[in-house]
Design a protein around this nucleic acid. Sequence first.
DNA 1: GGCAAATCGGTCAAAACTGTTCACGTTATG
DNA 2: CATAACGTGAACAGTTTTGACCGATTTGCC
Lengths: 252, 252
Amino acid sequence: MTAEERKHRLEAYLQQVEFASLEDLAKHVGSSVSTVRRDLTVLEAAGNLKRTHGGARIVTPKSDEFTFSARDTHQLDSKEAIGRACAELIRPNQSVIIDAGTTTFHVAKHLEDKSPQIVTNSLPVANLYSAAGRVELVLSGGVIYPRLGVLVGPLAVEVFTKIHADIAVMSAGGITLEGLTNSHGLLIDIQLAMMRAAAKVIFCLDHTKFGRRSVSPLCDLSKIHTIVTDNQAPMELIGQLRVKGIEVIVAG
Amino acid sequence: MTAEERKHRLEAYLQQVEFASLEDLAKHVGSSVSTVRRDLTVLEAAGNLKRTHGGARIVTPKSDEFTFSARDTHQLDSKEAIGRACAELIRPNQSVIIDAGTTTFHVAKHLEDKSPQIVTNSLPVANLYSAAGRVELVLSGGVIYPRLGVLVGPLAVEVFTKIHADIAVMSAGGITLEGLTNSHGLLIDIQLAMMRAAAKVIFCLDHTKFGRRSVSPLCDLSKIHTIVTDNQAPMELIGQLRVKGIEVIVAG
DNA sequence: GGCAAATCGGTCAAAACTGTTCACGTTATG
DNA sequence: CATAACGTGAACAGTTTTGACCGATTTGCC
């Protein structure tokens, strides 16, 4: 194994696990801790990873291991199913606005086949297609809201007031019969602009969002055309939503 | 087996495995390590692969300044030195525009201590500070130019015509006495807007850029205040630039 | 705050690798 | 046929990398 190859494998491994101890890394590439330490110093200088006491952490994860991954692991299966189901609602070559959030991120993952035009304010979604691919991706401007990787502020709002799209794929913190709520007030202006810009509004909400009310009110149910959720969502509320004329798709 | 055939097979093999040790390669083509070493020297000069300690690695993309690859180790030391030196020119709490490019990326890495306000159209730079930190980061909007991770298009230009910053940290494909050139025409509008928006314009150019002329002209030397380069840059050209009133800082 | 354990950067000898040199066999050339 | 030119493999001396060790520093726990 050459030094180059070893460094490459360290990076690849960290890409997978996000964080690893020196000993882990040494064992994984079959060399001593000293060598790994030296390699990490070099790789850190290159900017791909960050050394910490006792190990190293990846800086720019290629996959969905993003800042928000920690809270994402919970309903992972549900979100995957919702992502797949929602992606099926989108026809090839449509223009799609994608909201920031973990669930909508999973929708974005399944869109490559549709060669869509995506407009988003989500950094993780942008990273998903920054390498290549058949997806044309427009990123709104804005200030980075650190932990979430979302672009916020007037710059972001402005972009969505100017454009038009076929579909908006949205997420929210909670849904009741009174309407939708969201946990981050900063995002509401942007979300409203997104919804106004789209001909069809789809909300992706896993079952934990049903009957829950977050801090800030977002909009009432009349603004929504479709909801995609998973098979653990309460049937009663689903029925009531359908009565109100909202298409509810249960994934999985 | 002729020498030509052997070289061809070495290349093909490396194409497959990406990395290989000298011994591996020698065994694969059935000749001695010495011969393989000589072959690799020739092939490296041809540019299709890169020799490393103990072996060789295939070079997938041809790396110019704006092909962003996080694991781009080309001229790494130079870029690190330039990054550090350039970061020292920035005072705490200043607003800084950061151009897309690998060298400027290394500048961004060293800015955290200054708690600056960064405005950029570079996705990698945005990712650098998307997690947390004392850095306020504004990302311009725009369409993602896949290979480079840069935001381009009218949306991006517009942002930089609206704002104002203390410093612009720029990069380019080449510099001669006639001015600066860039390899990607799409970026020029944005770069010009960046330069107009900043009170002070700094260009970060490693020594390989000196005397080189890329495809598209960017601007003449009168627009530049400072150049940061490494200690392998030709002294003659540096002297001529200084005569023209440009501050040239040699890092390392 | 203090203390033990883990981790870090630096140093050093051993090992691996590199470029160079040289001898030898093979292939063009007069 | 002689001989020069060339490519190859092996040997060698110099350089880089590696793994282990050690005192200094940081971390986690009480």
